[in-house]
Simulated assay, not measured.
Amino acid sequence: MTMTAQANLPMKPPLLRRVLQAFVDIRELTLIVLIAAIIIVMSNINPYFLSFSNFRAVAVGMAPTAIIVIGMAILLASGGFDLSVGSVMALSSTVVAMLLLSGMAIPLAVACGLILGGIVGVVNGVLVTGLGINPLIATLGTMSIARGIALVLTEGFSVSSLPASFAWIGKADIGGFPVIVLFTILLVILFDLAVRHTPFFRQVYFIGANEKAAMLSGIHVTRVRIILYALTGVLAALAGVLLASRLMSGTPTAGNGIELQVLAAAVIGGASLRGGEGTILGAFLGVVFVALINNTMTMLAVSIYWQMIVIGGVLVTAVALDMLIRSKRG
């Protein structure tokens, strides 16, 4: 090869720059490194951090958030989002508890709770896609309505004294591992594979990247988005059922503020508020990252109020970095 031809070849960036670029582009890899760093640092500060009982408590506590983030990540990829997930979680929790107290069979009560979550999701989808209401306004409204219904039904009190057999869903172990955690991991794996390999969920990314192009290519955007909102509602309701089983009570104030944690985790995991990006695995790792930060601050005796500030700061930072990366790519 002549010197002139060699001079015209594009120069490869330095190895360090390529490695750093890989960390930026592959969000899952970045989160795995950050999670490992937190574990290493905290294990030196507090030996209890590495204990099985601590990891068990963290895993059980983050399970409802991890289930909800599945739907939120898919919604964000389509260009939407849902602020009502925490309220749907609380409403489903209280309704299922009240049905159980009335003598309804556990499978039927759980099915009613999931259907209720799906109905709220469909309402969100119709408001956003059918009536063209901004997702922020639409889901903010249903968030208030769902929470209000939960409070009206219970008069603000938790619904307790549930059948003992209902506790199995949220408290049982298999081989020393909580069923609720194993079930959550199974859901994450199934939905991650579905999003990566099934035609229906691949449409989500086309819609989020360019809605008009998706419509011209034959994708029924309205129908897909309504299904996604319904799915998000069902997953939020499922999280509420599992929480009610673990606490053995339906709590109308459950999930208050969880929508912030879910959004933060999904964005940290690689989802974009503009749509077209994100994975279920990345969103799940984002939940793990946020849960470990909360656990770290608790062990360091940081006030719960400061924890809210930190999570808000993490969300703003993640969105800012996402916008910066996008502008650099552009």
Results as ranks from 00 to 15, higher is better:
Pro10Cys: 02
Met11Gly: 02
Leu15Ala: 11
Arg18Val: 06
Val24Lys: 14
Thr30Glu: 09
Leu31Asp: 00
Val33Cys: 05
Leu34Asn: 04
Ile35Gln: 12
Ala37Tyr: 07
Ala37Trp: 05
Ile39Val: 12
Val41Pro: 08
Met42Pro: 06
Met42Gln: 14
Ser43Met: 10
Ile45Met: 15
Tyr48Cys: 01
Tyr48Met: 08
Leu50Gly: 08
Ser51Ala: 09
Ser53Arg: 15
Ser53Gly: 09
Asn54Arg: 09
Arg56Trp: 09
Val58Ser: 06
Val60Lys: 01
Val60Ala: 02
Val60Met: 08
Ala63Val: 12
Thr65Ala: 13
Ala66Cys: 12
Ile68His: 13
Ile68Gly: 10
Val69Arg: 12
Met72Trp: 02
Ala73Trp: 11
Leu76Arg: 07
Ser78His: 10
Gly79Asn: 09
Gly79Asp: 06
Gly80Asp: 15
Gly80Pro: 10
Ser84Cys: 06
Val85Glu: 01
Ser87Trp: 00
Val88Pro: 00
Met89Ala: 03
Val96Phe: 14
Leu99Ala: 03
Leu100Met: 10
Ala109Glu: 03
Val128Asp: 01
Thr129Ala: 13
Leu131Tyr: 14
Ala138Gly: 07
Thr139Val: 12
Leu140Pro: 14
Gly141Pro: 07
Ile145Gln: 05
Ala150His: 09
Thr154Ser: 05
Ser160Thr: 13
Ser165Val: 08
Phe166Met: 01
Ile174Phe: 15
Phe177Pro: 02
Pro178Arg: 06
Pro178Gln: 08
Val181Lys: 02
Val181Gln: 09
Phe183Pro: 09
Ile189Glu: 12
Asp192Lys: 01
Val195Ser: 10
Val195Tyr: 14
His197Gln: 14
Phe201Arg: 00
Val204Asp: 06
Ile207Pro: 00
Gly208Ser: 03
Ala209Thr: 13
Glu211Arg: 15
Ala214His: 07
Ser217Glu: 03
His220Leu: 05
Thr222His: 14
Thr222Ser: 12
Arg223Asn: 04
Arg225Tyr: 13
Arg225His: 11
Ile227Arg: 00
Tyr229Trp: 08
Thr232Phe: 07
Leu235Glu: 04
Ala236Ile: 05
Leu238Phe: 10
Ala239Cys: 07
Gly240Lys: 15
Ser245Leu: 06
Arg246His: 15
Leu247Lys: 08
Gly250Ser: 08
Thr251Ile: 15
Pro252Asp: 12
Thr253Trp: 02
Thr253Gln: 05
Asn256Asp: 10
Asn256Glu: 11
Asn256Gln: 13
Leu260Arg: 00
Leu263Arg: 04
Ala265Asn: 04
Gly278Tyr: 03
Ala283Arg: 01
Leu285Glu: 07
Leu285His: 00
Leu285Lys: 03
Val287Arg: 00
Val287Ala: 07
Ala291Thr: 05
Leu292Gln: 11
Leu292Thr: 11
Thr296Phe: 08
Thr296Asn: 07
Met297His: 08
Met297Val: 11
Met299Asn: 02
Val302Glu: 01
Ser303Thr: 15
Ile309Pro: 01
Ile311Glu: 08
Val314Glu: 01
Leu315Pro: 13
Ala318Asn: 10
Ala318Met: 08
Val319Pro: 02
Asp322Arg: 15
